[in-house]
Structure formats: C-alpha cells, structure tokens
Design a binder for these strands. Structure first.
Lengths: 345, 345
DNA sequence: CTGAAAGCGCTTACAG
DNA sequence: CTGAAAGCGCTTACAG
C-alpha cells in the first residue's frame, strides 16, 4: 500500500504538507498543492483509515448487532441503516447472533440471548465503533441484554424499559386502528381478529387499535371474534376454522401477520367460501408471500427501511452530541391495498 | 477507554509486560501474571483493535459488497459468511450497492454498476480489509466490475471470465437435471419448462440439465414445451396459459423460479385444472412464498448459506497463503418435496 | 508557506 | 523475568 511518506518523497516535501493538502487545511502553495495532488492521483493513493482512526480517536465505524439476519425484517432495516450511514461517511461492522437458527427456530430466553450478544458487543467495542444499532427479531423487551457502557446504542424492532435508552419501532396500535377502520369504511361491521401470541406487546397493542376503531364507530365488540394464534400459518388456519364454525361468522378477518392471513385464506377456501367476496382477509407485515398468494393480500407494510434510517440518524446525533429531543420513536405503517378485501357497499 | 498503560500503572510494571501476558508470549513471572490478569478482569479491559491493526498491519476485517441486500439471496449468504468469519475471528465490514432500488428494480448496465461499486471498494480498501466477498444479485458475468488489486476477492452468486478469479456458485445444470429426473421418476414424460430470460447463464444451464435428463431417459424433446419467461410471476402465468392452449399439454411444468411457478399454479387453477392432480408444478429457489402458496410448492433449494461459508473459507485460505486447489466452485442444490407434484404411477 | 516532532495504543526485538 | 525504545501511518500544534 502506498502511504503518505511515499507521496512526500516523490514530491520532495514533508508528510505534514501532504497531509495538509489531503485534508485541505493549513496554507499550502498552489504549486506544491498541484504537484502533490497529481502524484496522489497517479499512484491512486487511498488514506489508511486505520491510522487515521488511531490518531484521531475516531473510527467512523458503527456496529450493528442483528438477532437474526435470516428473519424477514433484518435486510430492510440494514438497508436503511446503510443508506443513512453512507450519507454520513460511516462504515458498518455487521454482527449476527443467529438467534433463531441456533435455537431450533425458537426464541431463546433472555439469559441465553445475553450469552450470544455479549461477545459480539465486546468485539464491536474492541473495534472502537462509535455507536451500536441493535436489531431485534420481535418487538420485545430486552432490558439488560446489552451491558451498560458509554457507547451510544439505539434499539430497533425491540426496546428496553430503561427510559434513557433510545429505540425506534413502529406504531402497532395505530396500524391496527388504521386497518380496522379501513375495513369498517368498506362496510364491514363483523370483524374477526386472529392475534399473535398473547405475551407479545405487538399483539396487545394491535388489539387495542382494533378495539379503539370499533368503539369509535360505535360497533359492538364481540369477544367471540377474537382468537389467539401463534404467528404461524397453521394457527391462522385453525383459528379461522373456529371462526367459521361459530354462529356469527365475521365478514372480514384481520390476521396479525401475513403467515396467519395466508392460513386464514386457505381455511376459508377449504370451507367452500371465497376471499374476498364472502370474507375479506387482511394481514400484517407485507412480507414477500403476500404478493403471491391468491388472492393477493391486502396488508400493513412495516416501515422497516425507515426504521433503519431513523436509528442511524439518531445514533449519529448522539454521537455528535446533538441534543436529541426524544428517546422512543414509533414510525407509522402503511396500508397496501391488494385484492383480499371486498367492499360491502 | 482503559488502555494498556492504565493496566501497567496499576500493576507497577511496563506496558511491554502487560502486552506479553495478554498475548501469552515472553517469560513472565507467575506472580506478575496473576496480578495483571486480575486487574484486566477488574477493569474489563478490551484491547484496542485499531491500534493492534496498525501495528501488526492486520485488521482481521473482511469486506463484503452486496449488490442488493433486499434481494432474497443476500441474507442467507451473509449468514454463511458471518458464521465462517466468526470461527476465524474475523469481523465483517458490510457494504450495500442497493442496485435494484437505485435503478427502479431493473438490473443496471455494467458501467453503472461499476460506478456504484467503486466507492464501496475504495472504502473497504481504505479500511484495510484483508479480503472482499462480492455477492451478486444474479448468476452473471461481472468481469471488470471490480478493479484489479492485490487484495484477495471471491465472487459469489456471480462470476468473472478471468480464470484467476475465485467464485462460488451453485450447480444450475445439476439442479435442473435432478429435478427433471425427479419428475420423470414420478412417471412424467411430458414436461414443460418455463425458463428465465434467455440472456441468463442460469437459464441456459438449467435448460441443459433439463435436456440431459430427458435424453438420458430416451424421452423426446418437444420444443413446444419450452417457453421463455422473465422471472416474474406474470410471465409464469402467461407462459402456462400458452402451454395449456396447445394440443399437447404437459403433465408437469418446471418453472425456473418460484415466482413463475406461483404464476403457473394460478394459471392452471384459473384454467379449471388442479395442481398437482392434473398438472404438477415445480419451482426453483425455495423462497419463502413456496411454503405458503397452495399447494405448497416442491422446489430446488439453493445452497445459499453454504455458498457464503465456502466463500469465506476460500478467502481465508488465500489470505493465509494456503494453496487453494480450485478457483471456481459449484455447490449442489437440494430438492425440497412439498405438495405440488403428483406421482403418475 | 513548509517541516520537525510528538503522539494515538499497541507489539516486539533487544538489552539488562 | 522485565523494561526502554522504536515503529505502524497518520494529524496537528508549533516554530521557522
């Protein structure tokens, strides 16, 4: 690798002068500047960022810890982080816990997670990253997972109970409210809900949004219309069967994710009914499959890329000691209309 | 951050001695060793990797350039890279071209790609990575995209014409041969093929595999059975309609990816026929949607994670100047049987 | 306008 | 067994 000394020798100047022209500081004569610039160009000199980092005590690296890069939310969030980082001249040190795979597709206990996260955290610290973004696999509480330290950290797709921690998530309740309202506007008054696991804050918040939309429109809340699934296709299928076997059958079903929505659609078809004509189905997440099942699924799109961007921007502000007016962020979701909802009016 | 000097002061020894105990080199008295170790533990000392890197001229960082992290193949490949890197104590500097998004979901020309890749490449070089893995979006020739340099680089999910370059891909022809043979073994003799774009080497190789299996089994190759799509759902749908409108209708259809297979299934259903009872459909890629469409799609699973691992292992060998016996690798695909194929026997 | 020198946090011959 | 010193490639007061 060619270094600053090589340039200096070639130009018959000191390394200080070369450094000055590279960084546009100090007074340098126009002649020498040109000469040096020419040489730099000729030899395609690339400054050694490692040396700069050591000297300036500033790496321009930020670390990301992702709980599992194979899970659908990770790539888009990383995409957003990368886009924002690029703008700020920051590099990304990527680290993956592989939580799902290492634990038979089950979400491990917090203590197990800690074991997996700690070495990655230390690795990042050793590499002198200027901040860390932690990407969760679920919107869940991970208080205490990452040890306290002076290094700035922002959590996304998860959160902590610590009021000093930064986190960026999406607005579960608002999204659920929005999609319920959408169904109501389409004339639906009997709306089934297939929730995720009940120990999930997302399930809870989305239930709240559902109820809020109902009561705002003076619609009766019917407890028989809400069934609890486990986020998987099969549970969507089964819970929909339950819904279909009741006296009152909903005209629309909200599944709290696309997988369960796909199961719901299949159950409805197997029951001899049509989607959307007999029963509308709506999902959550806007995963790839939602465009390819039949009918194409109307669903809520998560602001994944935006979450990544936002997390990076906040991190950059903390890093630069800008005042950050807010610690917990919730970004809005967007409805994507496809073919699984029929208007009753 | 606590540094080696702080430890030395606390222990009343020189920094050289501290360094020696940290790295287990040189003779150090048992007493002093213990004392130093204790202090290191107490203050939770983490060595500054940046300083080590500069001194040792060795960063233990490897760079990855991914053409688009939002594309389905990227996360699993990165997963594999990360797993192998972790074993070797390497960190990953991740870089994303965002090729698709920046170009309206079209694959840009090679010169445009170059423009996007070069700054990322330089960034990685500046950061003194010890090698680079380049992850393509398609199995395609990207000769000349990355400038020549002494830094080791291995290409995956793409390749170059340069015989000195390393690349790891999967075995298109073998996979296609395998799945065709599978269909034949199930009693199918009239097998349709919906290919991807014809300028793709994957399309060509898969066509070869298809033909090879046919001729090995003394089956007539019927040119009317092969249709050219463009990898998208819609084209799978249309090409299947064409197939269905011909005199001879195949009893099985191979689509060269899952998206087109999904389109094929829908076309068959809309035509009033059943999958798999009337016509079997088989895909390629094993993307998420293949588990959730109806019927669940039998498809070829790509060895994505293995490709990432392999790429990392090769890179590590080059980096360590091990003799690498081979430059171009092709990993095998695996058939995943689900519900879209019916046995005729 | 230009350069000599110190120093970032480490490692490593070498001397004692 | 232990430590003083040089040096990795840079930047930055400071002196001239």
């Amino acid at each position: 690798m060619v270094k600053i000394k090589d340039i200096a020798d070639k130009a018959n100047v000191s390394i200080a002068t070369v450094s000055n022209v590279i960084n546009n500081r100090g007074r340098v004569g126009e002649e020498t500047r040109k000469k040096i610039l020419k040489i730099i160009d000729e030899v395609n000199y690339q400054p050694n960022e490692i040396a700069k980092s050591l000297k300036l005590n500033k790496t321009n690296d930020i670390g990301v810890i992702v709980e599992d890069i194979s899970v659908f939310n990770a790539p888009e969030i990383i995409n957003g982080i990368h886009a924002a980082a690029e703008e700020k001249g920051l590099s990304i040190l990527l680290t993956n816990m592989g939580l799902f795979k290492k634990n038979g597709n089950q979400y491990p206990e917090i203590s197990k997670c800690k074991e997996l996260a700690l070495p990655l955290f230390n690795q990042l610290v050793s590499n002198q990253v200027e901040g860390i973004i932690y990407i969760g696999i679920h919107s869940r509480d991970i208080t205490g997972l990452i040890p306290d330290s002076k290094i700035p950290i922002v959590y996304t797709y998860c959160y902590t109970k610590n009021e000093n921690d930064y986190s960026v998530n999406y607005d579960d309740e608002g999204a659920s409210y929005q999609i319920t309202k959408y169904l109501i506007n389409k004339g639906h008054t009997q709306i089934g809900l297939i929730s995720g696991l009940i120990n999930s804050v997302s399930s809870y918040a989305r239930f709240q949004g559902y109820q809020k939309a109902l009561s705002e429109q003076m619609l009766m809340f019917n407890p028989q219309f809400v069934k609890t699934g486990d986020w998987q296709y099969e549970s969507g299928y089964r819970m929909t069967q339950d819904l279909l076997n009741q006296e009152n059958i909903p005209t629309a079903i909200i599944a709290m994710n696309d997988l369960m929505a796909a199961g719901a659609i299949q159950a409805i078809k197997d029951n001899g009914r049509q989607v959307p004509n007999d029963i509308a189905v709506v999902g959550f997440d806007n995963r790839e499959l939602s465009s390819y099942i039949s009918p194409r699924l109307t669903t809520m799109s998560l602001p994944l890329e935006e979450m990544g961007k936002k997390a990076m921007e906040i991190l950059d502000q903390i890093r630069n000691k800008y005042p950050v007016n807010q610690k917990k962020y919730r970004l809005g979701c967007q409805l994507v209309e496809r073919d699984s909802v029929y208007s009753l009016e």
